[in-house]
């Protein structure tokens, strides 16, 4: 099977969408002849024309808002928000407009659009270029949230997202961009709301998305050396959220750790834990634990970032705590 990088998958997914549907076009900063700051749209202007690969002023509100207007009038925009931190500048368009058009209009309007963005720590971009903010969007009915962890999932989830009738926030972790993975040809669309077990285990379940899936797998290897068998579930999308796959896993492991790079306080792990407790309380042999980042802005210096960010060491620690092998500490 062909091996490609994560960013190549993003590029192929978008190119395939542009090639197969005239209604699809892309808006963003630096996406045109520059090819995207992460090369997600490299060579697109030559292949698809500048009218469909549209460079924007640095104006997220109008970019996202015009995307909504285009979507409700028959187009299928892909809007690239260069850094996830910048969605804050366009929240009105996403939260008050895109998410609500279909409902408010009694289903006369639909806003089929993919809002692509990337975020995350590890590249020392500082507090305003490193956040993981997908939890914000779980709270707004009308938006789907996809967070792929592999090149194949990028292509499979994107193919589904671009054909849906509602907006999808498509979140990539830039630390994954150079990772590689096998990709079948063609990639089958992956339905939203369908998690996958990445590693079978018996003692503890770890649920995660995106980069945290890879960290959970690393933590599982580490725990294996300590004689602990860890099951890793990749939820792949947060809205809809595959709670069933977690409950099924818990019926075997009875212990849960939810891992995300987002700040732990108010993060989506709380939502999953609440649903697991409500629907699977009897399966739990230990309190479900979260492995999220500390509630502080993301600092620049390596040493400072390491002291607050959620990583494989924290996930491993939470696994031990879940098994009573260590005392819980924030």
């Amino acid at each position: 099977m062909r091996e490609i990088t994560f960013i190549e998958a993003v590029r192929e997914a978008q190119a395939e969408a542009l090639a197969s549907d005239d209604r699809v076009f892309i808006m963003g900063q630096e996406i045109g002849s520059y090819g995207g700051v992460f090369r997600a749209t490299q060579d697109f202007v030559r292949r698809f024309g500048g009218h469909r690969v549209r460079d924007m002023p640095i104006a997220e509100q109008s970019m996202l808002g015009a995307g909504v207007g285009a979507a409700v009038t028959g187009m299928r925009p892909i809007v690239e928000v260069m850094f996830m931190d910048f969605v804050a500048c366009g929240m009105d368009a996403i939260v008050n407009h895109a998410a609500k058009m279909r409902y408010m209009s009694g289903d006369q309007l639909r806003a089929p659009m993919v809002i692509r963005t990337q975020g995350g720590s590890g590249t020392h971009h500082g507090s305003q270029h490193s956040q993981t903010l997908e939890s914000w969007f779980l709270h707004v009915p009308g938006l789907a949230v996809a967070v792929p962890s592999t090149p194949q999932d990028v292509k499979g989830l994107f193919k589904t997202s671009v054909e849906l009738e509602h907006p999808v926030l498509f979140v990539e972790h830039r630390a994954l961009y150079r990772t590689t993975g096998p990709v079948p040809d063609p990639v089958a669309p992956i339905p939203l709301g369908q998690g996958v077990v990445r590693r079978r285990g018996e003692d503890v379940t770890v649920a995660a998305v995106g980069k945290s899936v890879h960290q959970a797998l690393a933590a599982a290897l580490e725990m294996e050396e300590e004689g602990v068998s860890v099951e890793v579930i990749d939820l792949r999308t947060l809205v809809p959220m595959d709670v069933e796959i977690v409950l099924e896993s818990l019926s075997r492991t009875h212990r849960l750790v939810v891992a995300h790079e987002a700040v732990e306080r108010g993060g989506w792990a709380g939502e999953l834990v609440a649903r697991v407790v409500a629907e699977g309380f009897d399966e739990l042999d230990a309190p479900p634990l979260r492995a999220g980042s500390k509630a502080t802005p993301i600092p620049f210096a390596r040493e400072l970032e390491a002291a607050m960010i959620s990583d494989e060491r924290l996930i491993a620690r939470r696994i031990r705590e879940s098994l009573d092998l260590a005392e819980y500490s924030e």
Binding site: Q61, S62, G65, A66, G67, V68, G69, A70, A71, V72, T73, G74, M75, A93, H97
Partner: peptide
Amino acid sequence: GLLATGAALSF
């Protein structure tokens, strides 16, 4: 204004 601008973009 943005909804109209987006519609105009569609056209």
